[in-house]
Amino acid sequence: MATDIRVMATLRRMTPADLPTAHDLSREAKWPHRIEDWEMMLALGDGQVAVIDDTVVGTALTWRFGADTDPAKAATIGMVIVSPAAQGMGIGRRLMEALLGEVAGRSVMLNATEEGLPLYRKLGFVETGAIVQHQGAAFAVPVAELIPGERVRPLGAKDDDTLHALARAATGMDRSALLDAIVPGAQGVMLTRENEPVGFALFRRFGRGYLVGPVVAPDAGGAKALISHWLGSNAGAFCRLDVPEDSDISEWLEELGLPQVGRVVTMVHGPVPVTDPTTRLFSLTTQALG
C-alpha cells in the first residue's frame, strides 16, 4: 500500500495559491508562522510541494543569496514539512533532492529539527553548530551599559549599504535582497562605536508576537545593547530570538524572562561560508532563512 501511495505523490512548484494549505501544515506541526510569514518567505524564494489526490501534503522552500557569479554564492532551505498522514513515504527526501538540484553549486545551509537530522545526514549535510530559540515577555529590562564612544541610534535612510556590508561580513553571504525586503516592514537600530557603524538589529512582527533579528554585532556586549533597546522599549510584548548556541547571550536572555524553548542543529551541504571574525550574527532573521 505504501508503494502505491508513494507513486501517487507528485512534486510541483509552490504557488501563492498553496499558501493556505502550507499554513495549515505548519500549524499542524505546531510552528508559529502566520500566513503573512509564509507570504513573505515565498516571495523571497522558491518552493516545492508534494501533492496526493490534489491535496498538498508536503512543503519545502529555498532561498538563494548572491548571484550565480558570486564566489560566495549560497542558499538556505527551510519550511520542510510533511503531513503526519504522509510521513514514511519518502516525500521529505524527494522534496529535499528537488531543491538541492535547483541550488546545485551553492553552499546550502539549514537548521534541522531532531526528526530531520537522519535524512539530512544521508543527503550529505554536516553539522556546524546549533541554534537555540528564546521567547517570552520581558517586563523589566535594565538599561544597557554602553562602553565609551558607543551609541544605539535609529536606522537612517542612507544606512542600506552599511546594513548589506555588515550582514555579509557576519554570514558570509550576500543578504542584500533579503534585507531590502524586510527592512521596510521593520523597525531598526544601528550600533556605532566612535561614530562608526559596527552592528544593527531589526524588530518586526512574526509568529505569535515579535522577532528581534537579525542582530549583527562585533561582540556579545554590543549584541546585548541592541537587544536591550528592543526588549526595553517593548516591555511585556511577546518576543522571540533565535541565537547561536555559542553566542554567550542565552543565559542573559533567560534572566530577562525569555527562556530557551527549543534547539535546532545548523548544517551545511558544501563549503562553510567564510565570515569576518570581527562581526557576528547574534540572532537570525528566522530559522528557515538563517
Rank of each mutant, 00 (worst) to 15 (best):
E114D: 12
L95H: 11
T128P: 15
A137C: 10
A86R: 09
A98H: 08
G105L: 02
A130E: 15
D53N: 13
V126A: 15
G149R: 04
I91S: 00
T59C: 04
V103Q: 11
A72F: 11
D46F: 13
F65G: 03
L123K: 03
V103H: 12
P148K: 00
P154V: 00
A130I: 07
E102K: 08
A43T: 07
G90C: 01
L146I: 05
A98K: 12
M96K: 06
P142Q: 04
G149Y: 05
I91A: 02
G149F: 01
E97Q: 14
M41T: 07
A140R: 13
P84C: 01
D68P: 03
A74K: 00
N111H: 15
I52Q: 03
T55F: 05
A140N: 06
G156R: 00
A130W: 14
G47Q: 11
L155Y: 07
P71Y: 10
G116D: 05
A74W: 04
G116E: 04
M89G: 02
L117E: 12
K73I: 02
V141Y: 12
A86Q: 12
I147P: 02
Q48A: 09
M40N: 01
A85I: 00
A140M: 10
E97C: 04
I77H: 01
V126E: 15
P118W: 15
E102N: 11
P142G: 00
R93I: 03
G124D: 09
G92K: 06
R121E: 12
A50S: 07
A75N: 02
L110N: 04
R94Y: 06
W38P: 09
I147V: 02
L42T: 02
P148E: 11
G149Q: 03
M96A: 07
I77R: 07
Q87D: 14
T59E: 03
R64W: 02
D53Q: 10
E102Q: 13
L100I: 00
P142K: 06
W63H: 14
A104G: 11
D70K: 14
L42P: 09
E102L: 11
R106P: 13
D37A: 02
E145R: 13
I77L: 13
W63Q: 07
D54T: 11
A67C: 06
K73V: 04
G101T: 14
Y120E: 03
I52K: 13
A85P: 04
G88T: 10
E39W: 12
